[in-house]
Design a protein around this nucleic acid. Sequence first.
DNA 1: ATTGAGACCTGTCGGC
DNA 2: TGCCGACAGGTCTCAA
Length: 264
Amino acid sequence: MTGARFTRVRLNRKDLRRPFPRGFVQRLRGQTVRTVTRRGKYLLVGLSSGDALVMHLGMTGWFRVESTAAANRRSGDRDQALENRHDHVVFTMSSGVTVTFNDPRRFGMMDLVTANHLPHHGSLAAIGPEPLSREFDAQALARGLANRKISLKVALLDQRVVAGIGNIYASEALHLAHLSPFRRASTLATKSGVPRPACTRLVTAIKSVLRRAISLKQTERYDESRFRIYDHEGERCPTPGCGGKILRAWQAGRSTFYCRVCQR
DNA sequence: ATTGAGACCTGTCGGC
DNA sequence: TGCCGACAGGTCTCAA
């Protein structure tokens, strides 16, 4: 998309999780894409007008990228109707590429924000440090967890503490760091806010788990066998010499996978 | 101010 | 084969 112009923008419905902003199509059409970046789980497309297109995939959102010729062929194909049922947004670009947003559960979202409003935009405003940046270290995590009475697992899902961690990698990181998902978040730092060794371990584990996931494109296709403990209830704990069994618990409405033996 | 519960949706899978 | 309930990768809102 970078460098290309939106020649056509099509909305197949008026909302996803929330309504599309008024004037969405008109404000996008004719704009050239300057940048395509990311902040946490939000995708940001910078436009020549100064506006930014903000997008989130929710749980089931994804983009199909194909030549415009292929997209046109598809739209005339009755057999594809079932699979294309959840195509909600179609971007036709001047480069000859068509980018289609498909999202069965419609938990995704798209918004259009002026550049000066971007830093204040809803959840983007309060979002925490990027996990793979230098800025995210034991000090930063200790600050984020200070005084929080919630469990470590629930804290990692809070995007204000650290950006971009979801239910799978919260379990994976805590396991790698040998930390109990039920431990109170505030206990990773001393009263005066100095990070404990466990805090440093968790930062290292988060970075390691995410780097590995990115290098393997791990969740691009959901493949449970690639996770160490997520969705492995009842199997042996993969920690060398541990011998524990992987358990499953329920926290804040989400399932947590963990080992009672090596995670304290 | 923080926290937990429920809501928003459709698809899939296991059990009967 | 078909029906039913449980559960799914994420926020967001509301009430306590």
